[in-house]
Amino acid sequence: METRVYSNSNKYSIKDILWSSIKGYKSSFYLAKQLAKRDVKAQYRQSVLGVFWALVPVLMSAFVWILLQMSGAIQLSATAIPYPLFVLVGTTVWSIFGECLTMSITTVNANIGIITKINFEKEALITLGFLKLMFNLLIKFALIVVFMLYFQVVPTTSLLFFLPLLLITMLFFISIGILITPLGVLYGDISRLIPVILQLLMYVTPVLYMMPKEGFLKTIMSINPLTYFIIDLRNSLTGMPIEHWTFWLGTLCVTLLLSILAMIVYRVSIPIITERMSS
């Protein structure tokens, strides 16, 4: 018979925690799928336009920049691929950063009612957030495919790397998101701060325009690691070569470390979050 012992053990073995975390992800997959189905269904049942709303934010910001560029209100250096596609892919990838970063805080907050009442594998919430993210992504990429067909941009073999690179990117931001989750759930400030910071960062990252050849902005952009994420993700999708292999290798290592750390922090902090958020 399964025996559980609850006590105040500050000393835990990293191996045990990791192992129970992995078991948690495995055993709670059905629950996560069920909850994701619940959320997606509920989201679209009371809506006429449905999936269109997932596209609105990306479409709007892309549209504004396309308009600015076409009207000549701002002068941008020419892009290798048609500008509308450039902007659309840029804003889509950028929105992934933000969604991954806030995913675990949002999911934990949305399910705080069951967290404080029911004992289930809380890893289910991370899977739940991930599944919902993927669902939204699929819709957005469908739009990109339409744009690519329209502008007749043909992907090359670098497209093969798109999915692995995307997964590394997502894992990287989700891990950071999980690491700040305890703070973000306890204090509302974090989830307000993230969009503000991202908004700022967007202008020093080549999301809406190419990296300049020289000048102040170029220096900042080359320091900004987000630059490399966005350039290569966009390149691999739109048939351009991947430029920064060493960056990706480094990121992969960092991401693996971060995700292990995130698993530990999440598992250790959930009971404490439960305790503080209980009503």
Partner: peptide, 16 residues
């Protein structure tokens, strides 16, 4: 098992 005790031990056997 939602929160852990600050002191002492709880042992639960079987399905809860």
């Amino acid at each position: 098992g939602l929160i852990s005790p600050d002191e002492g031990t709880i042992t639960m056997k079987g399905k809860i």
